[in-house]
Write a protein that binds this DNA or RNA. Structure first.
Length: 140
DNA sequence: TCAGTGACTCCCC
DNA sequence: CGGGGAGCCACTG
């Protein structure tokens, strides 16, 4: 039997918590053709080690969702949704946005990495230390 | 109140 | 390069 559901934080018709609301806000802001890793989204919502929880929030969103969750990938630049049957769809969506994948199924983070502009990091009231951590994670 | 869960990461071998 | 395992997090019965 296949696992029926995730048990972590999940979005609802109405965001159930500030964490969920922030995650959706950040993901919604990712531009066409750009991506963020689960860990990066976690930093941007003020929970630097909450990558796993971010995945929990996105769990349940499907092709019908207006939120561009396909732009959230793992740290390797790969797709993490194959296990829940969404991998093929997600990869196709990203390809349609002009993103290329290596034979190993990885995209180039250096090329497609999104850097939230100051107007957004300010709007999100992102603490300086988190902004610094975000860039350090990128090796900049 | 608390153990259980997973679209994550990191570390070690 | 690959597998295993241990933290981490927010949320659920």
């Amino acid at each position: 039997m296949k696992k029926s559901k995730a048990s972590g934080p999940r979005p609802r018709s109405a965001p159930s918590s500030p964490f969920v609301r922030k995650v959706l806000e950040v993901v919604r802001a990712i531009p066409h053709g750009k991506v963020l890793t689960y860990g990066q989204v976690a930093i941007l919502v003020g929970a630097p080690r909450g990558a796993r929880a971010v995945g929990g929030v996105l769990f349940g969103l499907g092709p019908e969702s207006k939120i561009p969750w396909q732009r959230v990938i793992n740290r390797e630049g790969g797709i993490s949704t194959y296990r829940i049957g969404m991998g093929h769809w997600q990869k196709k969506k990203l390809k349609d946005e002009g993103i290329k994948f290596s034979r190993a199924g990885l995209l180039d983070l250096k090329t497609h990495q999104w850097f939230p502009p100051p107007r957004l990091t300010k709007k999100w009231e992102l603490p300086e230390r988190l902004l610094i951590e975000f860039h350090e994670k990128l090796g900049i």
